[in-house]
C-alpha cells in the first residue's frame, strides 16, 4: 500500500513538474487550441485534418507568426508597434519594384529588410527622442507607411516573375513549405535572444520597471530604438514572404489587419500591457489559435463580417485576461 502511495506521489510530483515547466498559462493555451481543433475537426471532419488543410493553416500563420514574435519582443520592452501591417505592405511594394528594376532576387531581399528596418528606425527615434507615446507614433506611421506604399505603386499591384524569389513563397524543403521554415528559424533565433541572451533578458527589466533598469546600468534609449528597428526588419521579412507567396507587391491586400492579429497573438501568449512579460512559445501558441480559428471559420463558412467581429473580440478578451492575471498575482 505504501508502495502505491509513493507511486501516486511520484506521479503527482512529475505532473506538477511538467505543469511548472510548460507554465500554467501556456497549458491553458494548449487546452484552448485542442478545444478549437476538436470543434472544427468535428464539424468539418471531411477536410479539417487533411495534410493539405494543416499545411494551409501553417502557411497562413507563417507571416503572422514572425510578426507576433517580434511584437512580443516590443511589448516585453514596454512598447507597442501597430505600424507593422503597413510596413509589410510597403516592403512588398519595395521588393517587387526592386526585383522589377534590377532583376535580382537578392537585391529584392535586401531592399525589403532594409526598408523595414529604416521604417522601424523612424518609429524608434520618434518614440525615444521625440518622447511621443508609442501607440500614437506607430498609429501615425501606420498611415504614413501605407500612404508611401500607395504612392510608390500608384495603387497598382506590381508583379514578380523571378522564380528564385517565388520559391521563398511556394517552394518546399523536406516536405515543408519554405515560409514555415522561415517561421521556425525566426522563432528559434528570437527564443535564444529573448530568453538566453543578456540583452534579451534585460528587455524584461526595461519593460518591467525602467527605473530599476537604469539604476542597473542599462541604456534605455539604445534598447528602445533597437527594438523598433528589429520589429521593422522582421516586418520586412514578413513582407518578403507575402510578396513571394502572392508573386506581387501590393500596397494593402494581404497586409491589412496583420497588426491586429499579431498584437492579439502576443497578448494571448502572455504579454502584459505595461511590459515586462511575454514569451516566444506563448506567442506561437497564440498564433496557432488565431490560425486555426481563421481557417476553421472559413471552412465552416462564417461570413467575413462576423470573422472581423470575432478577431476584435479575441484581442479584447486576450488583454482582459492578461490584466486579470496581473491583478491576481
Amino acid at each position: 500500500m505504501s508502495h502505491a502511495m509513493t507511486q501516486t506521489q511520484n506521479t503527482r510530483a512529475t505532473a506538477k513538474d511538467l505543469v511548472d515547466r510548460i507554465g500554467l498559462h501556456n497549458l491553458s493555451l494548449i487546452i484552448a487550441l485542442a478545444a478549437l481543433l476538436a470543434i472544427f475537426g468535428f464539424i468539418r471532419s471531411d477536410v479539417f485534418f487533411s495534410t493539405r488543410n494543416l499545411l494551409n493553416i501553417g502557411m497562413g500563420v507563417a507571416i503572422l507568426g514572425v510578426l507576433a514574435i517580434s511584437q512580443t519582443t516590443v511589448i516585453v520592452s514596454g512598447g507597442l508597434d501597430i505600424s507593422v501591417g503597413s510596413i509589410v505592405g510597403l516592403t512588398t511594394v519595395a521588393t517587387a519594384m526592386t526585383i522589377q528594376g534590377t532583376e535580382s532576387a537578392g537585391l529584392g531581399l535586401v531592399a525589403g529588410i532594409a526598408l523595414g528596418a529604416a521604417a522601424g528606425l523612424v518609429n524608434g527615434l520618434l518614440i525615444t527622442y521625440g518622447r511621443i507615446n508609442a501607440v500614437i507614433v506607430t498609429l501615425g506611421t501606420m498611415a504614413i507607411f501605407r500612404g508611401i506604399a500607395f504612392i510608390l505603386s500608384d495603387g497598382q499591384s506590381i508583379s514578380i516573375f523571378d522564380n528564385t524569389f517565388r520559391w521563398i513563397g511556394i517552394g518546399r524543403v523536406l516536405g515543408l513549405p519554405v515560409p514555415i521554415w522561415v517561421l521556425i528559424i525566426v522563432a528559434v533565433a528570437f527564443w535564444v535572444f529573448l530568453h538566453r541572451s543578456i540583452p534579451g533578458r534585460n528587455l524584461y527589466a526595461i519593460g518591467g520597471n525602467p527605473v530599476v533598469a537604469r539604476l542597473s546600468g542599462m541604456n534605455l534609449n539604445a534598447y528602445r530604438v533597437s527594438m523598433y528597428v528589429l520589429s521593422g526588419a522582421v516586418a520586412g521579412i514578413a513582407g518578403i514572404l507575402l510578396a513571394a507567396r502572392t508573386g506581387s507587391g501590393q500596397p494593402i491586400s494581404g497586409s491589412q489587419g496583420l497588426e491586429l492579429e499579431a498584437i492579439t497573438a502576443a497578448f494571448l501568449g502572455g504579454c502584459a500591457m505595461q511590459g515586462g512579460k511575454g514569451t516566444v512559445i506563448g506567442a506561437l501558441l497564440g498564433v496557432a489559435i488565431i490560425g486555426v480559428l481563421n481557417n476553421g471559420m472559413i471552412l465552416t463558412a462564417v461570413p467575413t463580417f462576423y470573422q472581423m467581429l470575432a478577431k476584435g473580440t479575441l484581442l479584447i478578451l486576450a488583454v482582459l485576461l492578461a490584466e486579470y492575471r496581473l491583478n491576481r498575482s
Binding site: 533578458r201 534585460n202 524584461y204 527589466a205 518591467g208 520597471n209 527605473v211 530599476v212 539604476l215 542597473s216 546600468g217 515586462g276 512579460k277 498575482s329
Partner: peptide
C-alpha cells in the same frame, strides 16, 4: 535605492533574475 519596490526590484521576477542583473 530607498524605494526597493519602485527603484530596485523587479517584483514579478525571481531572486536569481534580480540578483544577476548587474
Amino acid at each position: 535605492p530607498e524605494d526597493r519596490k519602485e527603484e530596485a526590484l523587479l517584483l514579478m521576477q525571481s531572486i536569481l533574475d534580480n540578483a544577476v542583473i548587474c
